[in-house]
Computed example of a mutant assay.
Amino acid sequence: MTVEVRLLELFLRVAELGSINKAAASVHLSQPALSRHIALLEHQMGNKLFIRTPGGVDLTEAGKMLSDRARPLLRQLTLLREQVGEKASGQLAIGTPPAWQQVVTSPFVEKLAERHPGITLRVYEGVSNILREYMSARLLDIAIVPYDSSPTASYRKTPLVREPMVLVGRREDALHPEKPVALSRLDGLRLVLPGRPNVARIQIEHALERKGMQFRLAVETDTLSLCLDLARRGVGYAVVPASSVFEHGLGDAISWGPIKGQFVTWALCENLDRTHSQAVREGRALLINAVSDALELKVWARAERPKAKA
């Protein structure tokens, strides 16, 4: 059985949008033409892939299986195309923490688009445990996640930068970037934190428990902007990496200060199957440069290169 790549791409587009009409418009096909393509793919698969609903279409069990397995296959095909090519073109998929958006990610994307317009970039911004899963599944070429020393077979990791964790509260709390906050101030404080297994959440929870202090959770959310806004509203105090408060957009409505002894070290993770790619090499170099620029310009509060182990 031969299945055309184009049919799989169209199938995934319909699955993503949940509508044949919307998918047809997005790929510049008529609705009847796209329906014929889907019908052909269903014939080749020997099973129905979609069921019609009042709002569009849903995947059948067979459709869900095909969707899960087709994406990595198409990713591998893209990789093969790049292996044959010699230019810095093709796809680059990176994963970054939400906290890095303003201080590193956006400047990096801007420079990559300017210098290498032939590279199609896809940015996954998400929590560290999800980015690790994507790296293990080889869905990402590069990712930034908190460093840990456990061995991994599918990707290489290198400590890149260390930054403090900061306590964020209302303006009235008068926290200050130049006045570190003792861990004891968090004892019994209502905190706004991401859910487990987020590194910041686990780190603060364990630090308080080791000192015999009370860990008190007010709100659990993985959305960085919501953490900061809830701190602004006085719902609780947010604990976030220092990069989170760079150009946060809340003006003087919040105040923040670094927490003594609490840091996160970020690692650069690289997909070992993709290190040969020119697009990945160019992307890696620009990402490292974006971090260096932020450190040299002193815009990243108290961030530093990780200290080498003796």
Rank of each mutant, 00 (worst) to 15 (best):
L189G: 11
V192E: 01
V192Q: 02
L193K: 08
P194E: 03
R196K: 10
N198L: 05
A200G: 13
A200I: 15
R201F: 15
Q203D: 13
E205N: 04
E205H: 04
H206L: 15
A207G: 07
A207P: 08
L208K: 05
R210L: 14
K211Q: 15
K211C: 14
G212C: 01
G212L: 00
M213W: 12
M213N: 02
F215H: 11
R216D: 11
L217C: 07
A218Y: 04
A218N: 02
V219P: 03
V219E: 12
V219G: 00
E220D: 15
T221D: 06
C227M: 14
L228I: 06
R232Q: 15
R233G: 11
V235A: 10
G236H: 01
G236T: 09
A238V: 13
A238R: 04
V240Y: 00
A242G: 01
V245W: 03
V245A: 12
V245N: 08
F246V: 12
E247K: 15
H248T: 01
A253R: 15
I254A: 01
S255F: 08
W256K: 09
G261V: 10
F263C: 11
F263T: 14
F263W: 14
W266T: 13
W266D: 12
A267N: 05
L268K: 07
L268P: 03
C269I: 09
C269A: 11
E270G: 03
E270S: 08
L272D: 07
D273R: 12
D273S: 09
D273C: 05
R274C: 11
T275M: 10
T275S: 06
T275L: 11
S277K: 08
S277F: 13
Q278T: 08
Q278P: 01
V280R: 00
V280W: 03
V280C: 00
R281Y: 00
G283C: 01
A285T: 15
I288P: 00
